Computed example of a mutant assay.
Amino acid sequence: MVQDYLIYSTAWASFGLVHSLLAREKAKAVLKPAFGAFYRAAYNVLAGLHLVLVYIIGFMLFDGLVDFNRPEWLAVSQGLLYGLGWIVMLWALREYDLGKLAGIKQIREHFQGIMAHDEEPLHFNGFHRWMRHPLYTAGFMILWGRVSNDFDLMTAICGSLYLIIGSHFEERHLIRLYGDHYATYKSRVPAFIPWKGQVDLKEPKL
């Protein structure tokens, strides 16, 4: 069983490493000229396929597991957390340009002769007034809300570590991109738990 945990953790580590490396400026400088407007979409497809592979490995390793014997109050609480996580996720996504996030907008504008920017602008509205990473917060809620066996538990642990480490690298990039404006936002707004209250800041433009 320990070997299964190590293999699954390694699979998650490979996903985090590849995903992070491809998001770095050096990787973009090398790959983007080759992919052009298709870079963001290709990046998302590769990340999605890699994550599916990680889950398949997990399903194979932990096949036939028996669910934990959870008290009813815990199962109900997790169900509420899971459902609320999806509500937060879907609501927070409304604040993004989903076409640009997916890479579809860049491809469409490429064929219209328009040079599209890959970077998503900073968001200080909606949930972003309370926490810097509402999508990651929703991810935590979904991951831990569905824990009912060893596979779910390992997925929640590895997924949470990926989100925490990934947010660190993402914020380093945002500080390089937006400078003091993002540094000020970071100092005033919590990362995942909205314990400071609402903050109003003007959104900068690229």
Rank of each mutant, 00 (worst) to 15 (best):
W73G: 08
V66K: 02
M89T: 00
L61D: 05
V66C: 05
E120Y: 13
F111K: 06
G58A: 00
R108P: 02
D63M: 13
S77F: 15
I114C: 09
K105V: 01
D118C: 12
F68D: 15
D118T: 14
I57P: 15
G83M: 13
D63W: 06
H50Y: 06
G113I: 11
L49W: 08
E72P: 01
I56C: 12
A41Y: 00
W91Y: 07
R94V: 06
Q106H: 02
A116Y: 12
G113Y: 02
L84Q: 08
E72H: 04
Y39C: 01
R94L: 12
G48T: 07
M89K: 00
G58M: 02
G48V: 03
S77V: 15
V45L: 06
L53W: 01
L93Y: 05
A42L: 12
L101C: 10
G79W: 03
E120Q: 13
N44Y: 13
G58S: 03
V54R: 00
A92C: 04
G113V: 10
A92N: 05
D67E: 15
L101T: 14
M89L: 02
Y39I: 00
P71N: 08
G103C: 08
L98E: 14
L81S: 13
L90R: 01
H110M: 00
I107W: 07
L81A: 14
Q106R: 02
D118P: 12
I87Y: 09
M60P: 03
H123W: 06
V52W: 04
D97C: 07
M89D: 01
S77W: 14
N44A: 11
L122R: 08
I87T: 10
I87G: 11
Y55R: 03
E109D: 10
I87P: 07
I57A: 15
I114Q: 10
G85F: 02
M60C: 07
P121A: 05
A75N: 14
E72G: 05
W86V: 02
G99D: 09
G85M: 05
G113P: 04
I107K: 02
R94E: 10
K105E: 05
H123M: 12
E119S: 13
I56G: 08
A116G: 11
F68C: 15
F124P: 03
H117V: 14
L90Y: 06
